[in-house]
Every structure is written in C-alpha cells, then in structure tokens.
Nucleic acid binder design. Sequence first.
RNA 1: GCCUGUGUGGCGGAAUGGUAGACGCUGCAGACUUAAAAUCUGCUGUCCAAUUGGACGUAGGGGUUCGAGUCCCUUCACAGGCACCA
Length: 857
Amino acid sequence: MSSDISNIAQYNFSAVEEKWQSRWKNSGVFAANVKKNKYYVLEMFPYPSGNIHMGHVRNYVLGDIVARYRKSCGYSVLHPFGWDAFGLPAENAALKNGLHPRQWTESNIETMKKQIAAMGLSYDWSRELSTCSEQYYAFQQKLFLLLYKQGLVYRKESEVNWDPVDNCVLANEQVIDGRGWRSGAVVEKKMLSQWFFKITDYAEELLSGLDHLEGWPEKVKLMQRNWIGRSEGCLLSFSITNGGTLDVFSTRPETLFGATFLAISPDHPLAKEIAATNSSVKQFLEQWKVGAVSREFIETQTKEGVDTGLTAIHPFLPSVCLPIYVANFVLMDYGTGAIFATPAHDERDYDFAVKYHLPIKQVVESDSDSLPYTGEGHMINSDFLNGLTIAEAREKAIERLCEQGVGQRRIFFRLKDWGVSRQRYWGCPIPMVHCDTCGIVPLREQDLPVLLPADPVFSGSGNPLDAHPTWKHVSCPVCGKPAVRETDTLDTFVDSSWYFLRYCASDFNDSNLLDKEAISHWLPVDQYVGGVEHAILHLLYARFFTKALADCGLISVREPFNNLLTQGMVCKSTFQTENGEWLYPEQVRKNSDGRYETIDSHERVIVGKSEKMSKSKKNIVSPDAIMSEYGVDAMRLFIVSDSPPDKDFQWNDEGLEGCWRFVNRVWRLFKYASECGVSANMAEHGVDVKVLSENLVAFYREFQLIIKNITAALQSHAMNKMVAYLRDAVNKIYNELEELQSQQSLFGSVLGDLAQLMAPVMPHISEEVWQLLGFDGFVVEAEWPKYDETLLPQTQLIKLPVQVNGKLRGTIEVDPALAEEEIFTQALMVPNVKFAIGDKPIKKRFFIKGKVVNFVV
RNA sequence: GCCUGUGUGGCGGAAUGGUAGACGCUGCAGACUUAAAAUCUGCUGUCCAAUUGGACGUAGGGGUUCGAGUCCCUUCACAGGCACCA
C-alpha cells in the first residue's frame, strides 16, 4: 500500500518517551562497565536550587550527545550524575522558612531529579552522589587529614569581611557598597584565624600543566594563566638608613638607576611599626582601614601616600638615599608588600611621583618625550648598564645585585593560598580539635566521621555549629582533656574538587570511597562539559586536588580533565516598562504599528537585548513546560541546534516550533516507510549501487557525505552543524521519496542509518523508529554508521568553479582525474567565461585540483 | 587601563585562502482543502536588467595574493576575564 504521508497522525511523544525511558532503565543499558576503550563523560554537577533551568538543559544535553555518540562508537562509557548539595542558600531557606537545610536540599533534589530523569539522559544512576550525604563528606574529612599530613593544610590569620550585626564573615560578593548584603551594617576588616590549602605549592605545575591540555579552550587556559600570574624577577634587600632592611620584589631590576623612592603597603609590618611613633603615618593607616572595606572604594581610589621620614640606601649608589613612603597602591599580598618606584617607566609610580613632587629619572631611551615610557629601548643614565637593551641590562643588574649579596632571583605568583574556612552550618565539618594543652590537633581515623548535628538553630547571627550547646565539646584526641571542635566548615568548592574521582568507584557502597583501581581505569575525564563561569576557580581547585592526591599516593593521574567544553549562556530577549520594571512575555503584546505595549495598561514597552535567562529579568523559559508541550526530543534538538555550544544561545519560540515540526517530519517519514513495507530485513541485503537510477546513485552518494559530515560535527562538538546535516538528510530523503519506494533495500538502509544518526540528540524517537522498522536491540547500542568512502561525491564527477580574474564566471562538471589541459579546454568553452575573457590574451591560468580554475587576463 | 575574543541577510548562524549566506526562523507564492489549520513544493542579501545575466556585498580604511569573510596592519563597536600584581 502507499498511504499519503500528510495524513499520518502526529507523533505521540509522551507515550514514546515513557516507553523508552523505562526500557533503558530496566535493561541497565547505561551502567558503566570496566572494559577496554573507556570514555568518561562528565557534566558539572548542579547545585540543587529547586528547579532545573535551560542552562542545565543545555549542559546535560551536550554531555548526553557526547556520551551516546561514544557509546555507539563502541566505547565503554562512564556518564554519572550527582549533586553539589552543600551551600549557603539552604541555610538562608532554613532561616526564612524554618526548614532544616537537609530537608530543603533533599526535597529540591527530588524535584530536580524528576525533571532530569524526564530528559532521557544516559546516566548511570547507580553512581548518583550527593555531597551532603554523610558518606560523601565523611570521606572528604579523610582527604582533609591526608592533605594535612602531607603538609598542604595550614592555619593562618587572614583578613575577612566581618558583618558586626550578623556576626559572620561575608564573601566579597556579599559586600555591597561597603555594607553587609543582609544586615546593611558597615562591614569591617577583621583578622581571623582560618584554614588554608597550600595551592601555591602547585603554582608552577598548575601553570605548566596548562601547556599540555590540548583539549581545553585557549580562553580558559589563558584565564587560568592570568589568575596564577607568574612573574620572574629579583628580590632585593634595601638597607634602611637608620638600621634594618626592607625587602622589595621587582620584575624590572634594570630600572634601578631610575628609582627615586620606595613605597610600602599600608598593611606592611614596617608601616605599623612606624605608625607607633609617627602620627601622620598613623593617621593615614587609620583612614586606609576604614576606607578599604568596600571593593568599589579601593578600585576608585586615587594614589595616596605619606612620607615615613625613613630613607634607604640605593644598592648601586651608596651615596643616594631614597625616601620611603607608605602608599595605598602597594598591595601587601603580592610580592613583599614593598616596591622601589621608577616613575619614568611605570604609570602608577609616575602618578604618585607627580602628586607628591618626587623626582622622575628616565633610564630607558624612548623616541617620544612623553613619560612614563614602558616600551623597549636602550639603557641611559644607568652607569654600567648604559647602552644595553632592557633584557641584557636585566641580566646584568641581577648578576651584580647577587654579587653584592643584596639580591636573588625570585619568582612570585599572583595565586594565593586557598582559604577554605566558612563559618557556616551547611558544609563539611573540618575534622580538627582545639585543645588548651595540645593546641590544634587533627582527629584520629577512629574519631571520624564528624557528623553535623541534626538540630541546628538558625538565629541569623553567627555560626549554628559554634552556638550549638553540645556538639563542639569533645575530648582531645591526644591528651584526652576537654577540648572543642573546629566549628568552621569547608568551602563548597572543596566538595566539587574530587567528586569526579568518587564516581569511579566500582562498588558504590564501599567504605573506601576512592577505588584506586577504578580511578586509574576511568580517569582522566575524557570530556568535561560545563559553564565558562567555572573556568577559573572550580577547574583550578579540581586540578590542584588531583595533583595533591596523586602526591599522597591515592591516584596516579595529575590532570583530571582531558577535554573541556565550556558552553555559553542561554539568553532570551527582555521586556521592560519605561520606568525599568521587568515584564513577562505574557504581559506584552505587539501593536498594529509594530510597537510593543503592556496588555493591561497599554504602557509603552521597551524590547531589551537578549540577556541571560534569569528570574529577576522575567525572561526564563521553564524546561518542564517545554517538555510537556513539545516533548523532550524537540527540546533537546532545539537547545543544540542554533548556536555552537561555546557561544551564547538565543532562545526564540519560533525556533522551538521548527524543531517540533522537524520531529514530526521525521516521524511521518518513518511511519510512511513502514506502511510502504520498508523494514530492517531489506536493509540487510545492503545497497547495490549498480541497480540504482542515476538519480538515486547521486542521492546515495550525497547521503554518504552527510554521514561523514555528521560524524565530523559530533567529534568536534559542532552540534549546530550536526543538526543542520540531519535536516539536510531528511530533506533529501523527502525529495526522493517516490523513487525510494521502489528501492526498498536502499530506503531501509538509509532510514536505519538516519535513525542512528539522530539518536544522540533525539534518542526517544530514534529508538521508536528503529524498532518500528524492525531493527534489533537499542539504537543506542548499534554500531555507528560508516560511510562508503568510494562513493563520496568527491571521487565522482565534480563541479568546478571557473573564475576570470578571480571572479566567478561559471562552473564545469568534470571527472577529477581529468588532465589539467583538458580541464582548461572545457573551462574555456563555458559561454560566460568566453565572454568575460573576450579577445584579451590569457596572461596566466591556475588550476587548483578539486577547487577552482582561474584565468588571469 | 591591561589581556582575550567577536563583528557575515530581517534574525540564529554555515563556509581546510578557492562558487559567501549551508541548515533553521521569519516572510512570500503554489498544491491539497468548501474553508482554515496541518502538510507537501518552490522562492526569499541589495540594486539593475526582469529569462539567460550584470554590479555591489562579510563593522570602516589600507595591504599581501591569480584569488581574502578567512592572512597582515590600522580604526571603530560589542562581549568576557583581570583589575593599582611591582
């Protein structure tokens, strides 16, 4: 029979989705097995905030496409999922609703898990983890102690933003205009003893390791390089005129002859020392303390300082004494917190010198007169360095300083140690004890785990762990006397620094959560997918953890993520009233004159540019709503179809409609074919090109090219191109529909390939049509289609553009094996080419094989 | 301020230095239908000829090349990262 393709009933996505999701689940097809040819696909795990959003959808769909494609290619795939479940929002919710953070978190996980399960993602759910589970954080405490033994954990006084009303430490992001985000109190700078990880021990390796991460975007590597901020230079020691020395770091020791003053940070110990006897310095430091709290304040600061009255001796010019200033632009946490200033060749030094009327001495020759000059040149006014280039002079200056015993080569990093203490309840307790007799001591293995008390009280001020009546009181693991627990918990970035190791464990209930053998099998992660907002901190911390745990002997890899795909944001246009109030799309309509207005009050509406979806801007689209209206496959298709994964994605409802139309177009095609009697059996006979019409041969060749293109697009994560080629394939089949009916083995074979090609992005409908035509097993387990290289269009007659003076004048169709001379002859016969050349002589002619013919006249 | 990207139709976006605009959206037309929707089939960068064709065209200006969206220089715009880093 031959039914009418346009009469086929609409695709019933909900029945099909339910069917295949339950079959996948029951068959355990996505369980990861330790076999040769492993492939580890990982998406950054989410914080369980309550609902998944389109950003999650994009992230997980991208990862799922990779996982499913690799599985089809015969890899043994590990594709796990979990929850980054500790964190502040749970505590805020507790404060607001009186819910326990665990209750809030777990109910969010439940909701989100349903949403994620509905997306048909190929996760091995048996490995699901949650960082707030006792099992997970108990093991994290072991890791903490391990790092402690390795000397990578220490305690140090460090400056924090302190909210005096809420009695808590605030992150920089929580300080707004110098005030606490919740209390509104003026935030103070306060010294607090905090736990740190010695990430700086790995600064060099974290930096050099980037060179070998070929599968990472350059952008991310660069951001990490800048963050680590390595600078090579010279540490030199100045003698202070009336005793003592001052250490200064410089990357430009060759400009030392141009130094006209020294400057130290207001936080430098020497500044404090001087303030004791010098009232103007004291006053300056007090001003600095108050002002320095707000980040905005620091950034808009002009350069200010005060003369300490002290001077230091110039290392090369013993008779010259340089004044020492306290200056607000010198940072205590970089280098030594002190500099020598060369105003002629440094902008900051220059500004400062101009303001305080300090001398400016040029030591590098420049073409223009304008100072400061920071370019290349030869040294002047510099005694033994005169005439040398900057690089030569630098070497010589350092050599001389070393000889004099006042200098040494040094490398400084911008990277600071990682402060992990948080004065919060909802995090992993730090397994340490404060004992009056023994000091701060680690808990013993048998004292672990330190579990969070189940009954915290959230008063809105201070740390509930500290305020808890009994929890913190323990006996000292060393002397047994009464002692108190550390009440800080770990930064949640610690939780996410090793979760990818945890997934590897073969027995997920094992008490030894890091299964060394399994880890060495699965790691490194072959493809990591996530938002670019984690390009620096999370990825750096995870790399640090991997290296540190390798040095503890726990694992054998030193880099966790082989390939990294950073996806862009999901954006949508916004609507605002003229006074800036955000509007939902439902509140807005388009007028007959093309302008937008609000539906109820007819106010003028400003259509804003496309911005990242956010609740506050009222431009979010709910994945649930999309899935129930168009089904998962249409949503999955759309979220990867329009933009390359690393670019921002512009949401538009029409595009989604288009994807839904495409899903139905595919459905009709398969349904129609099946009604025409096409089946897998026929496909098995293979395609015999010899019996096909010229037209179908051409079609089949083009189809081979499409398989090739789709495969290449998948491998380079160009999902938008993959979708374009899929559509192209379907269009081409529709074009040949009539003829294909009479060539059922070709038809069946092509449709079988198509079902497989669609499967990574639209898994449900692909399984359904695969089964509909009678193919065996799951499409996700079928071997990825191969294309016939000998049939690619390039090997047959090809179209060749013919240019005259580089301008296209026609095309010829030739056998690519044809001799050059013959091709020129044919090209010259094209009427337009003849016309364009006219009677002018041909000066030169080009034939680029397989590309182009060009005549120059 | 510094660093890094990006800039292509009405829109999202394709194009190993070799036919610019694949694929989709929007729009227009035709077929089917009593009609609409859906579906199927065309067309859809601008301008001129109005069929064959021609001119212009990848943010602006310049250059290299037989040939440039692609490489180089320069200006501009936007985005992201860092932000007194010695």
